[in-house]
């Protein structure tokens, strides 16, 4: 039972981790909570479904379908993310810190209702794409979907890590996160780096949306909110702004949620409270998160 919940939690946590990375990348550079990120994730799911229902895609073998849907969802979500930044956040670069947050809430309401009104207000079935089988591991089992979710997530996170640590663009990104003004003086086009952060965050959100859709089998216009909050909790738990922290936080939240749902009596009814409780507790006890640094207030 314990191992089984651990496996479930790992699959769930990988999805949270991918989304948490979107929050953390943006926060690291702009110090703002991109509240609309949960709606980018939701839109990503609809983009992926749209891609899968294209006639020339649905005839292809499963692997190609998966790859194409992944790339299309990532691309469309990335563009959405960058577009939101350009329209709703960029004009507020020098406003008070609450201004972009309010703007982000506006965008979030707008996007959710856009899908609600013009796409569908019902939950829509999402194709599984790959055949379903189970691998026995002692008393527990791991499904093909879980293997896929975990594998794709870790692959993408590996790419991201390579990109940030080894490429010059990644270096520019780290510099911008460290000190934006200094980076600007050293010739880094920081506005483009900001766009890049939104592009990457959006792309990871889109990938998470496809995996999430396949894993749960249905998507809905309001699915972003709860998942978004949990992913944000994960980012805060790991130390917001810290990329490794976001992954660690995501996995922890996923595992915690499955263990809670499995072991606490009536746990599944209350499971959504756990992440909120964890969020508030982390903010109270260690607001800088597990891997974050304590930053003193600048005068």
């Amino acid at each position: 039972m314990f191992v089984q919940q651990l496996i479930n939690g790992l699959a769930l946590g990988s999805i949270y981790a991918l989304i948490a990375l979107g929050y953390t990348l943006v926060y690291g550079i702009l110090l703002m909570v991109n509240f609309a990120h949960s709606e980018i994730f939701m839109l990503g799911a609809f983009f992926a479904l749209g891609a899968l229902s294209l006639s020339w895609v649905s005839g292809l073998p499963a692997f190609m379908q998966l790859l194409l849907a992944l790339l299309l969802a990532m691309f469309a979500s990335a563009v959405t993310g960058a577009l939101i930044e350009r329209v709703a956040y960029k004009p507020l670069r020098h406003a008070s810190r609450l201004a972009p947050l309010i703007s982000a809430i506006g965008v979030s309401i707008f996007l959710q209702n856009l899908v609600f009104l013009f796409v569908t207000n019902q939950s829509v079935p999402f194709p599984r794409i790959v055949p379903l089988w189970h691998l026995e591991l002692g008393n527990s089992q791991i499904s093909s979907l879980q293997i896929l979710v975990i594998a794709v997530s870790f692959l993408l996170m590996g790419f991201l890590r390579f990109f940030i640590q080894k490429t010059s663009l990644g270096k520019a990104m780290r510099a911008t996160a460290g000190d934006r003004m200094m980076a600007e003086f050293s010739g880094i086009p920081t506005e483009r780096i900001i766009s890049l952060a939104f592009l990457i965050g959006g792309a990871l959100g889109g990938a998470a949306a496809l995996l999430n859709g396949m894993y749960y089998g249905s998507i809905k216009y309001n699915m972003g909110f709860l998942v978004g909050i949990k992913a944000f909790t994960a980012a805060v738990l790991g130390g917001i702004g810290n990329v490794t922290g976001a992954v660690l936080g995501g996995l922890l939240i996923g595992i915690l949620e499955s263990l809670g749902a499995g072991y606490i009596p009536g746990g599944s009814e209350w499971k959504d409270i756990f992440s909120f409780a964890v969020l508030i507790l982390v903010l109270l006890v260690r607001p800088e998160g597990l891997l974050g640094e304590r930053v003193s207030e600048k005068v």
């Binding site: 609450l98 947050l101 909050i229 944000f232 959504d272 909120f276 409780a277 508030i280």
Partner: peptide, 25 residues
């Protein structure tokens, strides 16, 4: 008394979390 020492955007998220917890409760 417990969350007000948090910075602006953290406070927003903490109160959001409390709001949802209350409703679920």
């Amino acid at each position: 008394a417990s969350v007000l020492r948090l910075r602006g955007d953290y406070l927003a998220i903490a109160t959001l979390g409390f709001g949802e917890m209350t409703r679920i409760f």
